[in-house]
Simulated scan of single mutants.
Amino acid sequence: MPLAAHGDTAGMLYFEGPDGGLEMIAARVYIELIAENLGLAIANLQLRDRLANLAVKHPLTGLLNRRSLDENLNRLSREATDLPAALMMIDIDHIKP
Rank of each mutant, 00 (worst) to 15 (best):
E36A: 12
P59M: 00
G7P: 06
A41E: 12
L45K: 10
L60D: 03
G21S: 00
N65P: 04
L45S: 06
D49K: 03
Q46T: 01
G17C: 01
L73F: 14
D49W: 02
M88I: 05
A43K: 04
S68G: 06
L64N: 09
L13C: 05
L47E: 07
M12P: 13
L13S: 03
P18Y: 07
L40E: 05
N53A: 09
L83A: 15
R67Q: 11
A35N: 00
L64M: 03
L87A: 10
L3N: 01
A4Y: 07
L63E: 02
D8M: 12
Q46P: 06
A86S: 12
L38V: 05
E32A: 14
E79W: 07
E16S: 10
A86W: 06
L76R: 12
I42Q: 08
G39F: 02
F15S: 02
A85H: 15
A35V: 06
A52F: 01
R78E: 15
D70M: 11
D49C: 01
A80Y: 05
R28H: 15
G62Q: 03
S77P: 11
L38S: 03
M24Q: 15
G7A: 07
N53P: 02
R66E: 02
Y30I: 02
T9A: 07
L69S: 10
L38F: 15
E23N: 15
G11A: 14
R67K: 09
V29Q: 13
P2R: 07
I90G: 06
Y30V: 13
L45G: 03
L76K: 08
A27Q: 01
L47N: 11
L87E: 09
M12L: 14
H58Q: 02
E23P: 07
E36C: 00
I92K: 04
A86R: 05
I34S: 08
A27N: 02
M1D: 03
P59I: 01
M24E: 12
N72Q: 09
M24C: 15
L51S: 03
S77Y: 14
T81P: 07
L87P: 08
S77W: 13
K96Y: 09
N37M: 09
P97Y: 15
G7V: 08
Y14K: 11
A4H: 07
R48I: 09
L73N: 13
N65W: 04
P18R: 00
N37P: 11
P59D: 04
L64G: 10
N72Y: 09
R66Q: 14
